[in-house]
């Protein structure tokens, strides 16, 4: 019973094996890919392991506090930012091994030529609640 975040990157992850930008796939390949992602989420809900999944717009802005009584400062997007998150999925699984297995399955989503993308997904454990018994 541990939650993990599966992070998908637009940019910043090591290069995928089947590294062709999505806009150069055929429309059918795009549809097949999207169907795979939906089926994956549906399957996880059916196994009782799905928590959340969201996609993010490719670009956003940066915001910071600028002092009492002043509006926040906004800036960006910065083209030089190395890491860009594309979306995430949160899973609740029994073991770390299971989390790795599921991330591997998600990384096998079909891309160009209908072949698996083999993209790198980032797997991050949640910090959960402290256990009661520690001594």
């Amino acid at each position: 019973m541990a939650k993990y975040l599966l992070l998908k990157h637009y940019r910043g992850a090591p290069a995928a094996v089947n590294d062709v930008p999505m806009d150069q796939w055929t429309p059918d390949e795009v549809s097949t890919h999207i169907q795979y992602m939906q089926d994956f989420a549906a399957k996880l809900e059916e196994t009782g392991e799905f928590v959340d999944g969201q996609a993010l717009a490719p670009e956003g802005s940066w915001v910071r506090y600028d002092g009492e009584g002043r509006p926040p400062v906004t800036d960006g997007p910065f083209a030089e930012t190395k890491d860009l998150i594309a979306g995430w999925m949160v899973i609740d699984v029994d073991t770390h091994q299971r989390a790795v297995e599921l991330a591997g399955e998600l990384s096998a989503a079909p891309g160009a030529g209908g072949r698996p993308i083999h993209e790198w997904l980032e797997l991050r454990p949640f910090l959960g609640a402290p256990p009661t018994i520690t001594e």
């Binding site: 019973m1 939650k3 809900e45 059916e46 196994t47 009782g48 392991e49 799905f50 928590v51 959340d52 609740d92």
Partner: peptide, 11 residues
């Protein structure tokens, strides 16, 4: 356990 009700129902 902080999961959606649908997920827990399936579990």
């Amino acid at each position: 356990y902080l999961v959606p009700e649908a997920t827990m129902a399936q579990r």
